[in-house]
């Protein structure tokens, strides 16, 4: 009995290990190897250069600007997504007529392909025909240079990202809210707690496990998010929305600097790993016994 169980356990472990090696470790290892080489393209014969690519990349202002942009972009969009998601979830958790419909609508953006959202966003904000531009003009406002100025471009990609991914937070928090026993709120009401005290002393602590995971997932995704920015701005104008993934992509595929691109990608990975570890220290998933 015991040996058969062991066999099954080993089989599952081996399968998991094989998948991890094939789809995670090999590509990551390959990227790291590339980052130590000099090559003009993926098919040319590479030359080993040690840490030269890293030295070069770290010496460039573009790298630090991209790192900073990445932190601003992911930081802003996470904070906004979590605050809005929390707010929406609390509204959707209350009973009101049409609750089901509104819940469905609230989830919609998350179901749309990023490409569709990016294109729609661009059409709506088009400088001459966009519906937003036209509406603003009727109100005597604008036009707003959505993607033309460095500061507004960053704000715009953050706005689009928040619109697109807040529903994820809303769904998770809504699920979390529904798991909170109503009797806790009733006990608190009898104990004299007002609406804010109930939120602070019951809702937030009860949501803590959900929020911890949601913020972590959002952080990882937003830090690595490539498509929405690429589709909206390609990192411009003047590199204002260029973060590490876009920098790595441009290096490797537009500027034929595969080693440099791989070095940026590897550094980005290291920065994210450090941030995640810091996060785990600050907000341990398991409560201390």
């Amino acid at each position: 009995m015991r040996s058969r169980n062991d066999w099954v356990i080993w089989a599952f472990l081996a399968a998991g290990l094989a998948v991890t090696v094939a789809f995670v470790l090999v590509p990551v290892g390959h990227a790291i190897v590339l980052s130590l080489q000099q090559a003009d393209s993926f098919i040319s014969t590479p030359r080993f250069v040690g840490l030269a690519n890293y030295a070069r990349v770290l010496g460039e202002e573009a790298f630090w600007r991209a790192a900073g942009n990445g932190l601003i972009y992911s930081g802003l969009s996470i904070v906004l997504q979590v605050l809005l998601g929390l707010g929406f979830a609390m509204v959707l958790n209350e009973a009101f007529p049409g609750q089901r419909l509104v819940r469905g609508l609230a989830v919609l953006p998350y179901l749309l392909p990023t490409v569709v959202v990016a294109l729609t966003f661009q059409w709506m904000t088009d400088g001459s025909f966009g519906i937003v531009t036209v509406l603003l003009a009727e109100l005597g406002l604008g036009p707003i240079p959505w993607f033309e100025r460095p500061d507004t471009a960053m704000a715009s990609v953050v706005l689009a990202s928040v619109w697109l991914w807040t529903p994820f937070v809303t769904i998770c928090v809504l699920a979390g809210l529904q798991g909170i026993p109503l009797s806790l709120y009733e006990a608190a009401r009898v104990d004299g707690a007002g609406a804010f005290a109930r939120f602070w002393h019951i809702t937030l602590p009860q949501l803590r496990p959900v929020l911890t995971v949601v913020v972590l997932l959002r952080a990882i995704w937003m830090f690595n998010k490539f498509d929405i920015i690429w589709l909206l701005t390609k990192g411009g104008p003047l590199g204002a929305t260029e973060h590490l993934p876009i920098l790595a992509y441009k290096r490797a595929f537009s500027q034929f600097d595969v080693g440099g691109g791989a070095a940026v990608a590897t550094l980005s990975f290291l920065i994210l790993t450090a941030l995640v570890m810091l996060y785990f220290r600050l907000f341990p998933l398991e409560e201390k016994r």
């Binding site: 009733e186 608190a188 707690a193």
Partner: peptide, 26 residues
């Protein structure tokens, strides 16, 4: 008035002391 609930409805993340103190703090 004070109420005792069937499932106790203790605040799970608060210590026993804080559970007792909560109504007074409020």
């Amino acid at each position: 008035v004070a109420m005792v609930f069937q499932n106790y409805a203790l605040y799970p993340h608060k210590s026993v002391y804080e559970n007792l103190a909560f109504g007074l703090r409020m």
